[in-house]
Amino acid sequence: MTDTASTASGKPEEGESRRDFLLLATSTVGAVGATLAVWPFVDQMNPAADTMALSSTEVDLSPIEEGQSITAVWRGKPVFLRRRTAAEIEQATKDDSASMPDPQTDAARVQKPEWLIMVGICTHLGCIPLGQKASDPKGEFGGWFCPCHGSHYDTSGRIRKGPAPKNLLVPPYTFVGDETIRIG
């Protein structure tokens, strides 16, 4: 202690700068440590491992006949899977050039034209559109109709009339077999 004391009293400026440097260095290292320590407390609110494991769903398409739809659940949301008829596919591609709020070609919305796969949540305010069952109203364009505020979707799930701003969302999916897909 004696020699530091003499340094401090003998050359005050040098002592000051050494002290400032130590303070700066220590607080920098301390701040880095504190920041790193905060991460686990932030990350714990992200989806847990078991939730993540359920983030992809496999669906067997083989029981679906042409012209039929089923609804699967993926990440807690309904997913519409429709095996479209030739007439529906033809209608959808024919309308590619029609004017619509969110222009998109049918080809950009499907991997195989026969299979239309979309998240079944209206892009307006989150209701679930009708049109999955044969008896449901399908709207003016023969696709889906949202009863909440009257949005009409066509056979490609594109918004054609009503308040919804966007086409029905196509989730990421891959064909893992001829008739099995993995969503997510």
Binding site: W39, F41, M45, N46, A48, D50
Partner: peptide, 25 residues
């Protein structure tokens, strides 16, 4: 407390879920 379930059927399991599945749980 964000991950724990105070119920006799789930308390033990929710703690083990914290230990195994929750990030940094």
């Amino acid at each position: 407390a964000m991950h724990y379930t105070p119920h006799v059927d789930y308390a033990f399991l929710s703690v083990e879920r914290i230990m195994r599945d929750v990030n940094y749980g």
